[in-house]
Write a protein that binds this DNA or RNA. Sequence first.
DNA 1: ACTGCGGCTGTAACCGGTTACAGCCGTGAA
DNA 2: TTCACGGCTGTAACCGGTTACAGCCGCAGT
Lengths: 333, 333
Amino acid sequence: MYDVAREAGVSVATVSRCFNRSGPVGEQTRRRIERAAEALRFVPNRAAQSLRAVRTHTLGVVVPDLHGAFFSELLRGLDHAARAHRYHLLVASSHGSQEEIRAALRSMSGRVDGLVVMNPDVSASTVEANLPPRLPVVLLGGRSGPAAGTLGVLGIDNAAGAGAMMQHLLGLGHRRIAHVAGTASNHDAAERLRAYRAAMAAAGLATDGLVFDGDFTEASGYRAGAHLAGLDAPPTAVFAANDAMAAGAISALRARGLRVPADLAVAGFDDIPLARYLSPPLTSVHVPISDLGARAVERLSAAVEADAPLIPRQETLPTTLVVRASCGAGDPS
Amino acid sequence: MYDVAREAGVSVATVSRCFNRSGPVGEQTRRRIERAAEALRFVPNRAAQSLRAVRTHTLGVVVPDLHGAFFSELLRGLDHAARAHRYHLLVASSHGSQEEIRAALRSMSGRVDGLVVMNPDVSASTVEANLPPRLPVVLLGGRSGPAAGTLGVLGIDNAAGAGAMMQHLLGLGHRRIAHVAGTASNHDAAERLRAYRAAMAAAGLATDGLVFDGDFTEASGYRAGAHLAGLDAPPTAVFAANDAMAAGAISALRARGLRVPADLAVAGFDDIPLARYLSPPLTSVHVPISDLGARAVERLSAAVEADAPLIPRQETLPTTLVVRASCGAGDPS
DNA sequence: ACTGCGGCTGTAACCGGTTACAGCCGTGAA
DNA sequence: TTCACGGCTGTAACCGGTTACAGCCGCAGT
């Protein structure tokens, strides 16, 4: 900036005012400055601006992984809302490891005005210990305990969603319903599994041998499908903890000559955009993934604008059952 | 930091040395400092560190959109490589608009050590005009002209991939082959369309009425499938410019009672992870998406470490044909 | 000619770290 | 006792912007 000032024959203060329109600058002075800035390819250094302003216009995002449609959709929601509020996104992924989480959180300090942390197995105290006080943070989909300290918590209603799906399947007459569970340490996965077990128990049905441990990937869904197809008494329905595993399961079942839904109904969870385009279109539980991101940004943005600590409220977004052809009911389109 | 220094009864220099192990610090002094830092929840301000060090340990990523498996996969590749080189990622999306691109680029200045820009319709001069000189930049999948100025260019071999796919379809005996094109302004889409036309022309086949304008979304693929199924003389094969549109097309064809591949073969492009789990498993052109991201990070990282301008080389990554069941050939699993 | 005033512009402190350089202190040797 | 030396620690400049405050200049009014 000093170079631009020298080139234009003015002081740095004038250059700054010219760029931010934060003070009066003479017409021809402005032209000289703009010419100089262009010639020198001057672009203001945001780090310096952030340092001085104590505002970065950036929100941090820490997710366990970037793989799959779920995170893609979440990021899209975050991005969309961030753009609307004129924020940028700083993304870090912490492949589950506590150490990586610590590093990711610490790397955010001073670079962001607020933080979205999605991590099943991270405690509120870990987050707080590695961030400066007063930084607004929203925890996504963590344990639904009371929002601790100054953290906001945002989750989805896994129990209600999984419950609705189970009622749907039971209502269609299914009695042997299998469940392909998500990553064991994942909180959402645990809630979905619990709701499955509860619904089966309430209907007086056993779940022995009907729960398959998956990890949210298509490949694990495929393995589950292959396993179930080979059973002596295969289930008549499979409820997967997410859509990717449901797609994998369908693929495995078909490869073994089973028809979906005629021989076996399949249902998923998340309702990713592709779900309606699978063959057959997948019955799923719609999760407002991008709304989740949008809502997180709203809350952070509100806290930042007001320069007040975030209200440590817990919020749960509703889920809705989406019936398509893969369970044999509803519009077969 | 001054607070920590005061609390521990030392100077800021000692605190800094203690944290970075960049100088000798007495044993009990260190303990006092650590105790004070913990009590005050001190986390160093990265903006200040960046400003002083002129290194941010962050790479910027500008993509047109965050939607879909392609970007998800790209981000994963970038993230993985960035993590390996101990970099963080600053992500911005510029929904196509020139103005948003400008804003995104300018917001990166001083916050990143290097930049990955993926944008079909952005000229090298736009990029250069909105970034400080000497900032290493890799352009992804842009026009494959000679790498301009100081920009690196990284692309994939669309022509070879689409060509191989067309040879495969023609080899299976197909003569009426339709193409579902990607977003018109997209460079990759244009190259794939061109290769399709070239292959048809070389085989002496007409393409009248066989090209459908899509936009890379499942919905546009669905519309294309519905349209093609309703033709008086439907094609015997459909080559979609990406997998999402292929999935949409399959869904539409099945909804109208057509069998894939028996009545109509379908092929895609990108080979997203889900492709093998579609029903039927999708024949596609494998694009090393995550390698693309990894390679971009490698080149930027090399330039940053060497503190030398990036070598403005153009690099093209190969694509490979992946035959699955959706075209009636190959392993039907 | 002098004063008042308003429009531009310049000087310098500050944001929160890092680090070159200088200084302090205690110990061992002369 | 004096001096050299090495191990710690403190002072202050610097990174690149922003901005409070002061100063300059020209013009209108008296």
